[in-house]
Design a protein around this nucleic acid. Structure first.
Length: 857
RNA sequence: GGGGACGUGGCGGAACCGGUAGACGCAGCGGACUUAAAAUCCGUUGGCCGCAAGGCCGUGAGGGUUCGAGUCCCUCCGUCCCCACCA
């Protein structure tokens, strides 16, 4: 009996797959298409088992669908622009391109070692000129369509690194890399007009029935649609102009307004600041405030009374003061609010601080108008309007409608829909990204780089040693002639946010050889992605940007679908225990020995015996030194064991804790499976009834096929692996292989099914088993086993019998037995009869093939 | 502050539609093989009572609906995630 040796078997089959190009997509036009995709990795340098789990999941789907008769597209590439390469360049003086290419080379080999069913012929990196050059063409397309534009906006500015930071790069008000307090700065930046699609993106969520509810909800909240009233308050006195436009979702509380508040960035505030040092100083004070959650939580409400007054739009006898307030945001609504302190907590806090009137206008049910007062808590609940003129007596909803109607009739405003979603700022002051293909000409303004001059190539030899944008510092690159007037001009030195790179790569994969950015025929044939797999951390940003880009490209006629990802699965992480020395230094798991000690365990450094502190199981990270590399596992047990383990121990959308004992369990399974194929005929139990044994084995086989198939389809890989364990245990019991053609055939059927059921999880092992069965072709090309539903069911059921809901016995009944049959069996059962002595059966509930419950009086 | 998810043995988890709670794995315990150990194999393992047959309890806590609740409803406790001065 030959021991299974993954070190020999695994490379052999990987070479065979590559040689035969089994995973090449688009080779079977008669088959339906299936596009399986995992979010492509950032080439950070090393693969860890978290990657392995992510790609193993996609691989199970890809291999399963291939076996089920689909022409599967399962590509791989690299999300290759980004900061780590610049950091490496700054710290070690290496070119970002060289650093990235080296990392890709290492990670590609590591990925290949996972034995993934990937069409490697389609591989590309976003830092390839062939990719980002075409992205520049797409940028110009968006610009032409009015979906890209420049505007002055307030951005997160890192004063040390001298660059704009995305919101997600600001952690607790500080730059994630420099640690410097982030400033809010006004800068002219490029934006994508994602807000044009706000409603469409929201509506589209309803069609994504194979997305997790949680992700759809997060996107819905992020888009943040609200219905309300936009109205203008006319300024009293001179200097009035057009008045102040305000947005509210509570027009019903209009009569409770006691002040107007505008954002510090509001044009009116800036106009006032120009002539008043006090205003200017207040605005500066507001800008200094941090944006972290903690700071917002504790931030004091600050206000500045401008001295201006506005008329109440529904009651011109009433004038309201205009304040500048730090809690009003310029980029939501109109950047101005009316304050109704009685029914908004923030307004109330503000009113109490600055001694402004609090007039309740919604009377809670059961309250007396004379007795009801708002003290320190605003009233947000339902009720009847009062103190509200023509709206008195209406409920909140009717009041909203009435107020909107009246304001519209008076020509002072209109019902409006407002979204929380903001346009996507895509400018980055970075040197390692896709250059924005635009030229600034003193005479002609913004000029697109002509198509013939594309791509705009990143220059080599950029200086990353200083903070700021190396493209802007580069001596020659930015100086060009204007394509229009041939006068001296400058290139745009901002590069595109790397989220732009990842918002169309899935379309490029369908035809990476296309001359144009997107090969329309291939994209039309392959998209949408049938199953997309990736981390929950992209629930909003990447997944929303990709949905926007797909819509924009559809409107341009380049794509035929609006939704890029028909199915989405968000996988959990792989975690590992952390170990640290008494002095706090982290120790990597390979140096640690963990021993049981009573009910708990103790960890020591294996070499020295030095005791360690066992920490929580956490996401693998370099800083905590708890990273496990798949290669290390492959050396010990083979990559199939690692694949099996990361898929088996937890549901795929939950985190899984990596343990060496767990991998050893998977390794045991591999050896047990191999033993069945390697030694097909020992172990005889002659006393067994062979006909019965064959039937039982066939039942187990068809049951296993059914269970594993359904588990894979339902993304319950952990359950699928559990069913494999069970099935192998059944085969191992090995009733009698010696004689009886029925039994030998049943066993052969079982082994053939087993190999194919195992194949998505442990593909190398499966190939070896398949070959051992004498199959001439590879299992990678074999069809998924079918099951016979009749065979998967047993013809006799063991029905538990409950008396008053407690299990008290059981009866054997033929499958599908009628209520009456079961009744007779239950009443005729001597054990149950004894239990029912002295009791009257009032009711008998029979659930076919499942359970019986007797209710006694 | 708003929104959401989840609480099941020593551990990871299973139970898909309300129908035998704890599948499968890990760890533990007992045994076989071995001079011995490792590996492997067999058995066993929710708690309590009992020699046994068997009984009682049990899915965070409390209540409800139902013949029947881990699953549905209400209240509470705990953990985690997302968003957040969003008008």
């Amino acid at each position: 009996m030959a021991r299974y040796d993954p070190k020999v078997v695994e490379p052999k089959w990987r070479a065979a797959w590559a040689e035969a190009e089994v995973f090449r997509a688009g080779t079977a036009p008669d088959r339906p298409k299936y596009y399986a995709l995992e979010m492509f990795p950032y080439p950070s340098g090393r693969l860890h088992v978290g990657h392995a789990r992510n790609y193993a999941m996609g691989d199970v789907i890809a291999r399963f669908k291939r076996a089920r008769g689909f022409d599967v597209l399962h590509p791989m590439g690299w999300d290759a622009f980004g900061l780590p390469a610049e950091n490496a360049a700054a710290e070690h003086g290496v070119e970002p391109l060289a650093w990235t290419r080296d990392n890709i080379a290492v990670m590609r080999e590591e990925l290949k070692r996972l034995g993934l069913a990937i069409d490697w012929s389609r591989e590309f990196a976003t830092c390839d000129l062939e990719y980002y050059g075409r992205q520049q063409a797409l940028f110009l397309t968006l610009w032409k369509r009015g979906l890209a534009y420049r505007k002055e906006g307030v951005v997160n500015w890192d004063p040390v690194d001298m660059t704009v930071l995305a919101n997600e790069q600001v952690i607790d008000g500080r730059g994630w890399r420099s640690g410097a307090a982030v400033e809010r700065r006004k800068l002219t930046q490029w934006f994508f007009r994602i807000t044009d699609y706000a409603d469409d993106l929201l509506e589209g969520l309803k069609t994504l029935d194979r997305w997790p509810d949680r992700v759809r909800l997060m996107q819905e909240n992020w888009i943040g649609k609200s219905r309300g009233l936009r109205l203008t308050f006319a300024l009293a006195g001179d200097g009035g102009g057009e008045g102040v436009s305000v947005y509210t979702t509570r027009p019903d509380t209009l009569f409770g307004a006691s002040f107007l508040a505008i954002a510090p960035d509001h044009p009116l505030a800036e106009r006032l600041a120009a002539g008043d040092g006090g205003v200017a100083a207040f605005i500066a004070r507001c800008r200094a405030g941090g944006t972290s959650a903690a700071e917002i939580e504790t931030a004091e409400k600050l206000g500045f009374d401008t001295g201006l007054k506005v008329f109440h739009p529904l009651d011109t006898n009433k004038k309201l003061p205009v304040w500048i307030a730090n809690f009003v945001l310029m980029d939501y609504g109109t950047g101005a609010i009316f304050g109704c302190p009685a029914h908004d907590q923030r307004d109330l806090d503000f009113a109490r601080k600055y001694d402004l009137p609090v007039l309740p206008v919604v009377l809670p049910p059961g309250e007396n108008p004379a007795a009801f007062h708002v003290k320190q808590e605003a009233y947000l609940g339902p009720g009847r309007l009062y103190n509200s003129g023509f709206m008195d007596g209406l409920d909140v909803e009717a009041g909203k409608a009435a107020a909107i109607a009246r304001v519209e009739a008076a020509g002072r405003g209109e019902g409006a829909t407002v979204y929380r979603l903001r346009d996507w700022g895509v400018s980055r002051q970075r040197g390692w990204g896709c250059p924005i293909p635009v030229i600034h000409c003193g005479a002609c303004g913004l000029v697109p780089v002509p198509e013939a001059d594309l791509p705009v190539r990143l220059p080599e030899g950029l200086d990353f040693s200083q903070p700021g944008n190396p493209l802007a510092r580069h001596s020659g690159w930015k100086h060009v002639r204007c394509p229009n007037c041939s006068g001296p001009a400058e290139r745009e030195t901002d590069t595109l946010d790397t989220f732009v790179d990842s918002s169309w790569y899935f379309a490029r994969f369908t035809d990476p050889w296309a001359r144009e950015p997107i090969g329309k025929t291939a994209a039309g044939a392959w998209l949408p992605v049938d199953q997309y797999i990736g981390g929950i951390e992209h629930a909003v940003l990447h997944l929303l940007y990709a949905r926007f880009m797909t819509r924009a490209l559809k409107d341009e006629g380049l794509l035929t679908v609006a939704e890029p990802f028909a199915g989405l699965f968000t996988q959990g992480m792989v975690t590992h225990e952390t170990y640290r020395r008494q002095n706090g230094e982290w120790v990597e798991p390979s140096a640690v020995e963990v021993q049981p000690e009573g009910a708990t365990r103790r960890a020591v450094i294996a070499a020295t015996g030095e005791p360690l502190i066992i920490g929580d199981s956490e996401k693998m990270s370099k800083s905590k030194r708890n990273v496990i590399a798949p290669a290390a596992i492959a050396d010990l047990y083979g990559i199939d064991a690692a694949r099996l383990f990361v898929l088996s121990d937890s549901p795929p959308d939950r985190d899984v804790q990596w343990t060496s004992a767990g991998v050893e369990g998977a390794w045991r399974l591999i050896n047990r499976i191999w033993a069945e194929f390697d030694a097909p005929a020992p172990g005889i139990d002659v006393s067994e009834d062979q006909v019965g044994a064959a039937a039982e084995l066939r039942r187990a086989t068809h049951r296993a096929i059914k269970a594993v198939t359904e588990a894979i389809e339902g993304f319950r890989f952990n359950s699928a692996v559990a069913r494999l364990y069970e099935f192998v245990a059944t085969l191992r019991r090995r009733p009698a292989d010696r004689a009886g053609p029925g039994l030998l055939a049943a066993r052969r059927e079982g082994l053939s099914a087993l190999a194919r059921l195992v194949a998505p999880f442990a593909p190398h092992l499966a190939e070896e088993c398949w070959a051992r069965l004498g199959e001439p072709d590879m299992i990678a090309r074999a069809p998924w086993p079918d099951y016979d539903p009749a065979l998967a069911e047993s013809d006799e059921k063991l029905l538990p019998v409950q008396i008053n809901g407690k299990r008290r016995g059981e009866v054997r009944a033929p499958a599908g037995a009628s209520d009456d049959e079961v009744r007779r069996l239950v009443l005729g059962d001597p054990d149950l009869g004894r239990r029912l002595e002295g009791l009257t059966v009032r009711k008998m509930i029979v659930v076919q093939d499942r359970i019986v419950n007797l209710v006694t009086g």
